[in-house]
Simulated scan of single mutants.
Amino acid sequence: MGKIKFGILGGGGDSLIGILHRVASSMFDKYELVGGVFNVDYQENLKFAEQLDLSASRVYENLDTLIQKELALPESERMQVISILTPNFLHFPMAKSLLENGFNVICEKPMTTTFAEAEILHQTLQKAKTVFAVTYTYTGYPMIRQMKHMIKNGDLGEIQKVDAQYYQGWINPIIHDIEKRSSTWRLNPEKSGISCCIGDIGTHAFDMLEYVSGLKVESILADLNYLYSDNKMDIDGTVLLRCSNNVKGVICASQIATGEENSFVVKVYGKKAGLKWEQENPNYLYLMQDGKPLQVLKPGHEYNSDLSLDGTKLPPGHPEGIFDSMGNIYKGVAKAILKQPYNAAEFPTMIDGVRGMSFIEKAVESHTKGNVWVDIHNY
């Protein structure tokens, strides 16, 4: 069977997310990048495509032209899946158009800019019956998948607490400069949605806790930080969680944690044991038990689950990273598109995207109403 023909919207130039998706899609020889719309400037679009050695005939001026020209091709030649790597405000209209025209979609998070848009997109997908994935990238790490397996297997016993901390410092030099903070799209509600920090990295933490624990967050209480009165977007926040099975938890997210790079730490504690994982050291999963030495679990060993081993590409002792994590998500999507057997945990779905949007809006609502408990939509 030939490779899945693959297109990209956005991600041109030196975009980190563009490189990440292109490398990830190439890992298992499942996809062939054939074209897309990489830049709003058509000439820059063509130059970038030339760098990638793509035919100019499959590089389009805009999404409408892409859809029209691709649908005019024989089905065996047209793009089967398209990845959306644009700023947040374009996710919804692009994804909706693609679904309505029968394309499979891989979309960066947050999936939309509002919960209402996410609901519309969910309804559109139900009619389209295609494959839709949201790239909560870190769920692709082998040891995160091992963490999920061990919790589901009961190795921790009854879950007592969930905890995620996601600290970055990148916005610190921007937020204190009035010109810079008014010019970046991340702090512009029209382009980014109603939240910066919670929408960008807090939603990763929310999805991750639900992914590994198998619990659902039912209600939250948020306290967000904006620093300046003219800044309409949170850049730091703490969110208390009430989950299913009466489990409590917390998410701490910050983009003004001076000196931090991408410190994402996930912890789940049960009656029998606890597990801890750190994104900056992703090949180590720490198993903690009362009265016993700390155990360090690593990828590639036979003691890991089938789900973890399926996402491991190298022998033990050979570090894997974020490209591999995203590659595992693309691998799962490929199985779904090709109608091959796959584990539901292999890629985040539309439902994850919808719940993520509910979390973002409810966090802002909780803060705005004076730090009160609010319920997450039940999806």
Rank of each mutant, 00 (worst) to 15 (best):
G157C: 08
G157T: 02
I159L: 15
I159K: 03
I159N: 09
Q160T: 14
Q160I: 13
Q160F: 04
Q160G: 08
K161H: 15
K161I: 09
V162E: 06
V162M: 06
V162D: 02
V162S: 02
D163E: 14
D163M: 07
D163L: 11
A164S: 14
A164C: 15
A164P: 00
Q165Y: 03
Q165P: 01
Q165R: 14
Y166W: 11
Y166S: 10
Y166H: 15
Y166C: 07
Y166G: 04
Y166I: 12
Y166A: 06
Y167Q: 05
Q168M: 12
Q168N: 11
G169S: 10
W170Y: 15
W170E: 08
W170A: 07
W170I: 11
W170P: 00
I171Y: 02
I171R: 01
I171D: 01
I171Q: 01
I171C: 04
N172F: 04
N172M: 05
P173D: 14
P173N: 09
P173I: 09
P173F: 04
P173C: 09
I174N: 04
I175G: 04
I175Q: 03
H176E: 10
H176Y: 08
D177F: 02
I178C: 10
I178D: 10
I178M: 06
I178Y: 07
E179H: 13
E179L: 05
K180R: 15
K180C: 05
K180M: 08
R181T: 10
R181W: 05
R181N: 08
R181S: 06
S182I: 05
S183C: 08
S183N: 14
T184R: 01
T184Y: 03
T184Q: 03
T184K: 00
W185P: 10
W185L: 13
W185R: 13
W185A: 13
W185Q: 11
W185G: 07
R186L: 15
R186H: 08
L187E: 03
L187F: 14
L187N: 03
N188S: 08
N188T: 13
N188Q: 12
P189K: 10
E190R: 09
S192H: 00
G193F: 01
G193V: 00
I194M: 02
I194V: 13
S195N: 04
S195R: 01
S195H: 01
S195E: 03
C196M: 07
